[in-house]
Amino acid sequence: MSYEFEKYRAFGPLYRITHWVFAISCVILLFTGYYIYEPWFTTMLEKGVDDFTVANMRFFHFAAGYCFMGAVIARFYLWFFGNRQERITDALPVTKRNIKNFWGAILNYLYVKFHVPRLGHNALAGTTYLVTFLLSMVMIASGFYLLYPESVQVQAWGGAVFGSQQNARFVHFILMFYYIFFAMVHIYIAIWNDVMFGEGLVSAIISGSKFLHIKRPRVD
């Protein structure tokens, strides 16, 4: 016997593009950002080498940072104007449906009681993405404060929010580990879901379509 699945449209193109911009820019940002913190490979040769290692790393960091910010802006739009799966109403555990789904997702991940199919993300994932989104704004703000430290306008709000440059650098650095943590858990959970339920979750972020088991009742 086999499962019977039906294909559903889950995620729109803009949503999928923002996902991959996040993914690629985060890899670049983490790599170059850590390099800026601790330049672990260095050029000891003075003559004949004009490779501008650190300057280039910083350039790629800033360029990737702007891409990241663009994706954050697009994601902000989608929180309110995306399709049903992309909206904030599908993520926040404030409605009865989402609260139920939030605890259901925790039990699901603890192997206690497996989930009821849902076209969008479960509410636990949605909440995590919302938290990540807010932390990304902190990351962007601290990044701009570090990038334009001499601008009096940037100093005015940057100083009020973060204090000195050193404090902003500290926040920017510590938050980096949140993104590593997020990437580790996110990739693991996505693969785990695909292995466990065969909904095609991993490919859904490429194709936009998800497969739901038709014999099991859907909640939404």
Binding site: P39, F41, T42, T43, M44, E46, V49, D50, D51, F52, T53, V54, A55, P149, E150, V152, Q155, A156, G159, A160, Q165
Partner: peptide, 30 residues
């Protein structure tokens, strides 16, 4: 002054940005 009350003529710029060792930083020589 800047927003911390420091005169800009003396505290308007980061030490890093007019340090004599800055070229080594950009080249990755530490």
């Amino acid at each position: 002054t800047d927003n911390l009350g420091r005169p800009l003529f003396a505290y308007g710029r980061k030490i890093h940005d007019h340090c004599e060792r800055r070229a080594h930083f950009d080249e990755g020589r530490f």
